[in-house]
Structures are given as structure tokens and as C-alpha cells.
Amino acid sequence: MLKRSFMAILCGVIAAVGLSATTTVTAASAAPSCANVEVLFARGTAEPAPPVGLTGLSFGQALRGALPGKSVVVRGVNYPASANFRDRIGLAQTVINGVKDTQNRITFLARTCPQTRIVLGGYSQGAVVAGYAIAPRVTLPAQYRGSAPTPLPASVARNVAAVVLFAPPSARFLRDAQAPAIEVGPLYQGKTIRYCIAGDTICNGAPLGQPNGLHVLYAVNGDTVNAAGRVAARI
């Protein structure tokens, strides 16, 4: 019953957001251009509208509206947002690959487009990717340790205007999943905004479990608009 209602809500969210904005979204590996602002967004687990996902599309649209006269490019992190939780090692590797892709893009932009203001974002599993990308360290279990991402150079922090995490899995949720908690590095703490709908069991500290219907509402509940306003004030 929960799964059925969850899917019904998700379908409603897809209809509400619409997919017309996908024409303005490119993958993180696309040819570079120096926009005023680049949003680098990691979508949630199996979230529709890849590579950015519904939440990223909604946030990107809102940020464009909040920054009239500025060019805003929205790019999706190159990772599959896999839902294959039975293959823990494979899933962990896809997250690590997403973290490295995020860090590579930030470093690349800081070097080649130093005037571009970078906005890093992520939803759900994507918030883990974004959070790990700006962590001072990611301490992984022994079987993954050789693949652990290295911290970003401190010099690129000034290029990152803001970090927005929608429904970031709580420390308890990640601990139950045998994954490290999201630890935002000191250079990014004052730039980081987190959103968690009250009752969303992914981010509210509940034990590991399936998401409820509240977890898919970030694209339509006003949080992306609120986040865009707060981010625009930092650009």
C-alpha cells in the first residue's frame, strides 16, 4: 500500500514539474562554457528526468527566475543514481564515481572559468554525492578504502557560491546502511543549506527503511524556490 501511494505521489510530482526544462540541461561531461552560474546537481535514487532529476530541474528553473539577466547552466552529475541496493559494493562504487565526477567538474571550472559561480546541489542519494564531494574526508569500510575520494583543494572553495542538499540521508540512516555520514568541510559549512520535510524518514533521523510519500515532494513543496532565493543572494 505504501509503495503504491508513493508511486502515485511521484507521478503527480512528474506532472507538476513537467519535463520541458530538460532541453536546457546537459550532462557534466558536455563541452565547457563559462556561464555566470553553473549548477552541478546530483539526482536522487532512480529519480526521473536524468541527468538532473525532477528536484534539480525545479531548482534550476527557480534559480534562473531569481537571477534575471544572468546565464545559468544546469548540469547533471555523471552517475547512475542506482537503486540496486542488493549489490552494495557496486552501488558504493557508483556513488564514489559520482563524487569524483563532481570534484573533477568543480576543479575544472575553477581553473578554466574562474568567474563562474558554482552551485552544488543534490537530492537524497545525490545529496550524499554532493556532501561527500565537499567533505574533509570520507572514511569508507575496508573493502572500499582504495577507492575513497580525496578532498577538494582548498583553493576551489572560493568558486563555490552555495551548496544545497535536499533530503540528505541522516547520520543514523547512513550508519544503518553502513555508509559514512555526510560531513561538510569547514570551508563550505557557511555556504550549505539543507532541506528536510518534517516526517521524511530518509532525512529526519528514522532507522534505515523505504522512503515515504513526503520524500518525493521537494520539487513541488516550495523548497526549491526558497533555496533559489537564498542562493541568489550569494551570487
Results as ranks from 00 to 15, higher is better:
10 L>Y: 13
72 V>L: 04
20 S>H: 13
4 R>I: 12
86 R>G: 12
80 P>Y: 06
11 C>N: 14
14 I>R: 11
104 N>R: 14
25 V>W: 04
44 G>A: 06
95 V>M: 05
55 T>M: 03
98 G>L: 01
96 I>Q: 10
45 T>G: 03
12 G>Q: 13
31 A>T: 15
52 V>N: 01
65 G>N: 13
76 G>K: 10
54 L>V: 08
108 F>E: 15
89 I>W: 04
106 I>F: 09
83 A>S: 12
85 F>P: 02
23 T>K: 13
59 F>C: 06
16 A>N: 10
12 G>H: 10
41 F>K: 01
9 I>S: 14
28 A>T: 11
104 N>I: 12
89 I>S: 05
10 L>I: 08
11 C>S: 14
98 G>W: 02
66 A>C: 08
39 V>C: 03
84 N>I: 00
105 R>L: 15
99 V>F: 04
95 V>H: 01
53 G>Y: 04
61 Q>C: 00
8 A>R: 14
60 G>S: 12
72 V>D: 10
37 V>D: 04
44 G>L: 05
30 A>D: 14
26 T>A: 13
91 L>W: 03
85 F>T: 04
9 I>P: 00
39 V>A: 02
57 L>C: 02
41 F>N: 00
66 A>D: 13
39 V>R: 02
73 V>I: 14
80 P>L: 06
68 P>H: 09
15 A>K: 04
15 A>R: 08
80 P>D: 05
51 P>N: 06
19 L>Q: 11
87 D>Q: 03
27 A>I: 07
104 N>Q: 15
100 K>A: 08
74 V>D: 06
91 L>T: 06
7 M>A: 11
33 S>P: 00
75 R>E: 08
46 A>T: 02
90 G>F: 07
65 G>R: 10
57 L>A: 08
84 N>Y: 00
84 N>F: 03
77 V>R: 01
79 Y>I: 03
78 N>H: 14
75 R>N: 07
40 L>F: 07
28 A>W: 10
36 N>H: 02
87 D>F: 02
69 G>L: 09
